[in-house]
Design a binder for these strands. Structure first.
Lengths: 194, 194
DNA sequence: TTAAACAATGAATTATTATTCATTTGAGTG
DNA sequence: CACTCAAATGAATAATAATTCATTGTTTAA
C-alpha cells in the first residue's frame, strides 16, 4: 500500500466518492469503485488497506481541505458578524461545489462511530471556530452575554446541516449559497425580529 | 407473516431497536436480534418480510407514535410561541425517553433513500406543523413577515436534530429536555438579542 | 539486451449472513 | 386420548462481496 498521493490514488478516491454517494457505503461494492476508476479490483488494495479505509481516507482528505478553506474564510472577517457570515457562506459553497462530499458527510459520517477512527469528532474544529466567533461577539457587545455557548454552537451547526440536507434531497436544484445570508439573519435576530 | 401486533412482534421490534442502535443497521445481524428477543432466527420471518422490513416497521411504528404526541402537544398551545415551545419540548422529551429510537432516527433514516419507502418524507408532518406555527405567528404579528418559511422550518428542525445528536454522542449524560427553552429562545430572538 | 523491481490484474478463495423449509412442539378440540 | 393446525425451530442453503495472490505486464538501469 502506497502512502503518497499518486494520480491513481486520487482517481480511486474520486470514484469511491461517487459510488458511496450514490449507493451508500454498505451497498457500494469494491467492484463498482474499481470499474468506475478503470482499474482492477485488486488494485484498490495497493492503495488502501480495505473498504473502510477508503471511506476513512475520503473523509479525512475532504475535511482537511474544507476546514482549511473555512479557517481562511473566518480569518478575513473583521468582526464576529462578518466572520460568521463568511463561515456559513464558505460552508455552503464548499458543499455545493462537491455534492458527493455533501451526501457522504450527511449520511455516512455517522458510520464512523463503528470504526475506531482517529477523527474523534469531525465537527470539533468547526465547533471551536464557532466558539471563538461567539466569544468575540460577546466581547464586542454584539451578542448576548447570557448565551449558552455549547448550545449555540450546536444550534448553528445543526441548522446549516439541515439546510444542506434539504438541498441534497432536493437534488441540488437551487442555489445553496443564496441561503447563507437569510440563515445568518435567523441566527442573529431570530424569527421574532427587532 | 402476521399483520397484527402480537406480543412477540413487539418483543422482536424492541430487540431490533436495541441492536440497530448499538451496531447500526448493516452490522446488526438477524441472529443478534433473534437472540436478544429470545426466539429462533427463523421466527423473525414469521413476523417480518426481511431485515429491511424490520427497520421499516420500527421507524413506521415509532414515528406514528411520536407524531401523535407532537400533534397533541401543539394543540395545547394557545399562541404560536407556546405551540412552538410545546413542540420542541415534546420532541426532546420523546427522544430522551427512547434513546434507541433517537439513535436510529439520527443515523439510519438516511438509509431509507435506498429502499422505496412509503414514508416518502419522515419529517414532512413535522415540517407542516412548523409551517402552521410560523404562519400563525405571522398572523399574530409575533413573528416577522419577511420570513422565508421554507428556510425557517429547516432551520428549526435542523437545530433540534443537532442538539439531539450531541446528546446521543454524549451518551445521554445530561437532561435533554432542559435544552428546550434556551433553544426556543434562540429561535425567537437569535444570538444578538433585543 | 536483459534482468530485477515494481505495478496491476482478476479469478479463486473465504467469510459472512440473510433466508428457507423440513421438522418439531404444543395448544386446543371432539 | 388422538388429531389438527398454527407457531416456532435452527440446521442447511445460497448468495454476496471483500480480500488474496499467483500470474502477467511494464519500467528501470546496468
Amino acid at each position: 500500500m502506497q502512502k503518497n498521493r499518486s494520480e491513481k490514488y486520487n482517481k480511486i478516491l474520486d470514484s469511491a466518492g461517487a459510488v458511496f454517494a450514490e449507493f451508500g457505503f454498505y451497498k457500494a461494492t469494491i467492484s463498482q469503485i474499481a470499474a468506475k476508476a478503470g482499474v482492477a479490483d485488486g488494485t484498490l488494495y495497493l492503495y488502501f488497506k480495505n473498504k473502510d479505509d477508503i471511506l476513512y481516507q475520503f473523509i479525512n482528505f475532504k475535511s482537511q481541505n474544507v476546514f482549511e478553506k473555512m479557517n481562511a474564510a473566518v480569518e478575513t472577517g473583521r468582526n464576529a458578524e462578518s466572520k460568521l457570515r463568511n463561515l456559513i457562506r464558505c460552508h455552503l459553497q464548499e458543499f455545493q461545489n462537491d455534492r458527493n462530499m455533501a451526501i457522504i458527510f450527511q449520511s455516512e459520517v455517522r458510520y464512523l462511530r463503528d470504526i475506531e477512527f482517529q477523527i474523534k469528532d469531525i465537527s470539533k474544529m468547526y465547533l471551536d471556530l464557532l466558539s471563538d466567533i461567539i466569544e468575540q461577539g460577546q466581547v464586542e457587545g454584539y451578542m448576548r452575554q447570557d448565551l449558552f455557548v455549547g448550545l449555540v454552537k450546536r444550534f448553528i451547526l445543526g441548522a446549516v446541516e439541515g439546510v444542506i440536507g434539504t438541498w441534497v434531497s432536493a437534488d441540488a436544484r437551487y442555489d445553496l449559497v443564496a441561503m447563507a445570508d437569510p440563515l445568518v439573519d435567523l441566527y442573529l435576530v431570530g424569527v421574532r425580529g427587532e
